[in-house]
Design a protein around this nucleic acid. Structure first.
Lengths: 236, 236
DNA sequence: GGTCACCTCGAACAGTGTGCGAGTAGTATC
DNA sequence: GATACTACTCGCACACTGTTCGAGGTGACC
């Protein structure tokens, strides 16, 4: 795994072939289905081959590597992150952030890959291009365009990855949220003993009923608008 | 891998034992050494056992799982993220952000784990506790404390993960930054053909010499202060 | 009919995490 | 001092992984 990511898939010429039997697109589609259905650990070349009615090693004609396959599959995640051509920069940033977030929610396996696998695929590139356009039109100048864009992307990733990872590992246990809380509560209480702020915070939640899922969403919104506000002041 | 993360290591009682031969701490320390030296793919139970002069399966007495071992090892990453007890919230946030960033730089293998593995270890908890304290003292109230904290953490993670992942995969190829750029340039140019904003941007960099490493650092600073500014306006 | 590029795939290799059960060594109890 | 018991180590085995290699097939062009 992960020996030499550069060249990545996107830097190599695609083999133009006869387009019969297996095809690269077909493989990628099947891989996404498998991932969505059974998660990252369940993706093996053999299983994927079987799902396509082919031998495992046949895949290696169309795809150099498992790593390369993953790069291809990751770009599918970006497929739904589409921004309107002409949009206010704030609106563009919001649409991007929420679309990206939703994309990872839709493909939870991507949470452990999305910052790590280089995003050089066509879908990822058009998404950045659109976002960049909005920032340029807004009046960001020079390197600030990059900085501002990067900030939005960073925040979105950093907020989404842990959220999705938590949810999907929760689902893997089969426990409900309240069950988990009941199991974890006493331990956290003990651990928080000499951490006054955490303890205080934890206590204040214990009384009221409070949905961590909703809270996360609101947290995402809060941080996003704060960031956009901060970026806005750098426009003049 | 990753079947049922809750209970994680931190929710189980530690076996109190005779403390001879192997110990959990010893194992974790050796694992970090191995990871730092050879990367995430190189960490296997057999190799780790060998490094400790023990059989691979002996480890399973001290550690339930490889997943559990990884939770333990991840908390070591947070060990260097220490905040001063009493600090201005902005300063605390900055120290946290840069310390976290540095920690991941020091242990590049953590980039692909840090958002995904639950951070419930003692080091992670004290770090959040300190950060939270600063935000409370600053005057954030109620749920805003969480929101503001989460925003800072999210941004930091989202900015750091891709940066470190890129650097360490670059190192894995053995190519230098300029070599890589030379190899990738024509491909990007072609891909950017119908993405006007990316193309324009790429062109404008081609002339001047511009160090992507430095740029990333400045980008981190830019986004961080923007975010802190945005959070600051929510204090009154 | 021959040649050649495209494509498939079975066998094999070196490696992985982990369950099981046998075995050892040190301490506590009678 | 013998017995019991707990803490701990570890070899074997299983089911699996990604990937290489080389032998085969199959259709299109000369």
């Amino acid at each position: 795994m992960s020996a030499k990511p550069f060249s990545s898939v996107w830097t190599r010429e695609r083999k133009g072939g006869r387009e019969q039997g297996l095809s690269r697109d077909q493989i990628v589609r099947a891989a996404v289905e498998l991932l969505d259905a059974e998660g990252l650990d369940a993706l093996s070349m053999r299983k994927l081959g079987a799902r396509l009615g082919a031998g495992a090693t046949s895949l290696y004609w169309h795809v150099a590597n498992k790593d390369e396959l993953i790069e291809l599959v990751m770009d599918e995640v970006y497929a739904t992150v589409v921004l309107p051509e002409a949009a206010d920069w704030r609106e563009a940033a919001r649409v991007f952030a929420y679309a990206m977030r939703q994309a990872v929610f839709d493909h939870p396996w991507s949470a452990s890959l999305i910052g790590v696998v280089p995003a050089l695929g066509p879908n990822a590139l058009t998404a950045s291009d659109r976002l960049m356009g909005a920032f340029v039109r807004a009046g960001f100048e020079g390197i600030d365009v990059d900085y501002a864009m990067t900030a939005v992307v960073s925040y979105t990733l950093g907020a989404t990855i842990p959220e999705v990872a938590f949810l999907s590992s929760l689902e893997a246990t089969g426990k409900s949220m309240t069950e988990l809380q009941a199991a974890v509560d006493p331990v956290v209480m003990k651990l928080a003993a000499d951490r006054p702020n955490l303890l205080e915070r934890y206590r204040s939640y214990a009384g009221q009923d409070y949905d961590p899922l909703v809270a996360r969403r609101l947290a995402f919104e809060f941080g996003l608008t704060a960031l956009l506000d901060g970026l806005g002041t750098r426009l003049r």
